[in-house]
């Protein structure tokens, strides 16, 4: 593994994403929406940081997943990934370079959520820790989708339903008990539950088991996708 090459991919991704509005907007949209809605809407009886937790969960299910899938599938479609592989860049170096960039960008968004939620000290660290686990899981799902897909079109057709499940199911679960029974099996619901208890955070067996099981399934799916399609 070459750090120099991983950094080269990382720097390339910074320059490229800054000029790619469709990807960039996904990282900005939810933190911005949270700032606006949190300051504009105050409903009596609403749990503290309701909108922060709601939008942070959606952000986790959406931004890293769609960002990673979009970047990889675009590189495959435009042949740039093949050129990288033929120029002595390893799949791991590429994935870490791109993944680290998206992870850091999403963590910046997480800091914005944390500031809007007025988390301080250990509460802020707990919030960022929980967010980072969710972001990492979504990144792996995005990587699996991007690797599986031959082009952006096929990536989008998989990304949208997957992203909707992980982003919206926790919100729908608030209003529907039956959905809640299914929703508790997905990592974004567990992340949502943990975020609702920031400050008095306690990891339950269910939290850890569901998140770990989701991660294991996602890693297995990524391996299958990589073996089937490869990166280039």
């Amino acid at each position: 593994m070459s750090i120099r090459k991983t950094m080269a991919i990382f720097k390339k991704q910074i320059k490229d994403t800054l000029k790619n509005r469709t990807v960039l907007i996904q990282f900005i949209m939810f933190p911005l929406l949270t700032i606006i809605i949190n300051s504009a809407m105050q409903v009596e009886g609403m749990p503290k940081n309701y909108f922060v937790v709601l939008f942070a969960t959606m952000y986790i299910g959406m931004a890293p997943l769609t960002g990673m899938a979009a970047i990889i599938s675009e590189e495959k479609e435009k042949n740039t990934l093949r050129v990288l592989m033929m120029s002595n860049v390893r799949a791991g170096e590429y994935l870490i370079g791109v993944g680290a960039y998206i992870f850091l960008l999403c963590m910046l968004g997480a800091v914005v959520f944390g500031i809007v939620g007025d988390y301080q000290g250990s509460a802020m660290l707990q919030f960022l820790f929980v967010m980072s686990i969710g972001i990492l899981t979504s990144l792996l799902i995005g990587a699996a989708i991007g690797t599986w897909s031959k082009n952006q079109m096929s990536a989008t057709s998989i990304t949208i339903p997957v992203m909707m499940i992980f982003s919206f199911l926790p919100m729908l679960a608030m209003f529907n008990e039956s959905i809640g029974k299914v929703s508790r099996l997905i990592y974004s619901q567990q992340i949502n539950n943990l975020m609702s208890n920031i400050g008095v955070l306690e990891l339950s067996f269910e939290n850890v088991f569901v998140i770990a099981a989701n991660m294991a399934v996602v890693i297995a799916l990524f391996v299958i996708a990589y073996r089937r399609s490869g990166l280039a």
Binding site: K12, K15, D16, K19, N20, K78, N79, T80, R82, V83
Partner: peptide, 8 residues
């Protein structure tokens, strides 16, 4: 296919 980064 040239494999260049269009936006760069």
């Amino acid at each position: 296919n040239t494999g260049l980064y269009d936006r760069l």
